[in-house]
């Protein structure tokens, strides 16, 4: 179904600005599908994923610019480094619970942001740095249209991967961790390993998208690693619907489009955005998609 939507949507795009927004929406969707594995399925919050996203972006930018590595290699190396980093910090951090975990992940995100901002000799500092196009085997991805199809395919792949992961034994273990960690441990699930695993997976997702984003945008600033961006990602997941792959996807798309629509109301933008966030969570506490689905089910049951 997703494939159909992605194929049909461009019919409504009259210029490359629409493609640009759509690509950004899909980038966010990929990150959120990954993050949702952590938040929605394993029940662990992270307020630092923008840091991983930014590391991926800067990793690619630096490796291609100063070392002359091909973009694909730069992307994979960055993702590996981010994965390792997530693995190293994941063990101690994921022992923490609830708000303490939120604090710790937030701290890591902010530290990454500060490093990117301060090491101006390498990263260009707060004014950012430019990044070359993405090319693979002599074939260069350029222009919003081409990016749209490439990222569209990646999104479908991501969703397929996520759905498979959730139905695998790993996925079942994760849900057990979410339901009751102690319970899961009692029945012999190595909860901390699973939590770290999914933390690493979601960080790698964020890093890879960060790399692609850097190539596509052509210019990055440390702000992509800011606390606000981390919060934005979590809001996308929760608003769309936790523990639902398509929920996270819809949340990402809506929250990417919303500021574009609200740009016309100018100064009221922040108020309306805040009100929509509050309203959605008050009236649809499980998130958009799950709430709508259960409403449908109820109606069908009633008939």
């Amino acid at each position: 179904m997703l494939a159909v939507v992605i194929t049909v949507a461009p019919l409504g795009f009259s210029n490359s600005y629409y493609y640009d927004v759509a690509v950004n929406a899909m980038f966010n969707a990929i990150v959120c599908v990954g993050l949702n594995l952590l938040i929605g399925y394993a029940g662990q919050i992270s307020l630092g994923h923008a840091g991983f996203f930014a590391l991926g972006a800067y990793g690619s930018a630096l490796l291609t610019a100063s070392w002359g590595l091909p973009p694909i290699a730069a992307m994979l190396i960055s993702a590996t480094v981010v994965g390792l980093l997530a693995f190293v910090v994941g063990r101690p951090i994921l022992k923490l619970k609830g708000h303490y975990l939120a604090m710790a992940t937030l701290g890591i995100g902010i530290i990454i942001h500060i490093v990117l901002k301060t090491e101006a000799k390498i990263t260009g500092g707060p004014d950012g740095m430019s990044v070359d196009n993405f090319s693979l085997l002599g074939f260069t991805v350029m222009g919003d249209r081409m990016w749209y199809w490439v990222v569209g395919i990646l999104l479908i792949l991501t969703v397929w991967l996520a759905l498979n992961l959730i139905d695998s034994p790993v996925g079942r273990a994760l849900r057990a961790v979410h339901g009751s960690e102690v319970g899961a441990e009692v029945v012999g699930v190595d909860t901390s390993s699973y939590k770290v695993l999914v933390f690493v997976v979601s960080a790698v997702f964020a890093s890879m998208v960060g790399s692609l984003f850097a190539h596509k945008n052509g210019f990055i600033t440390p702000d992509i690693g800011s606390f606000m961006h981390s919060v934005e990602l979590v809001v996308m997941v929760v608003l769309g619907g936790m523990a639902s792959v398509f929920g996270a996807l819809i949340g990402a798309v809506i929250l990417t489009l919303l500021p574009q629509f609200l740009a016309v109301v100018e100064q009221y933008e922040a108020m309306i955005l805040g009100a929509i966030m509050m309203g959605t969570m008050i009236f649809l506490p499980k998130g958009l998609l799950p709430s709508i689905v259960s409403a449908f089910k109820r109606r069908e049951g009633g008939q």
Binding site: S14, N15, S16, Y17, Y18, D20, V21, N24, G128, D144, N217, G218, F219, I220, T221, D223, I224, P259, Q260, A263, E266, E269
Partner: peptide, 19 residues
């Protein structure tokens, strides 16, 4: 309004030029 963020500035510039 780009809110001071480079990434938003990119999208809005594209919107101004293209749309």
């Amino acid at each position: 309004d780009d809110g001071g963020a480079g990434e938003k500035a990119t999208t809005f510039t594209k919107r101004l030029i293209e749309s």
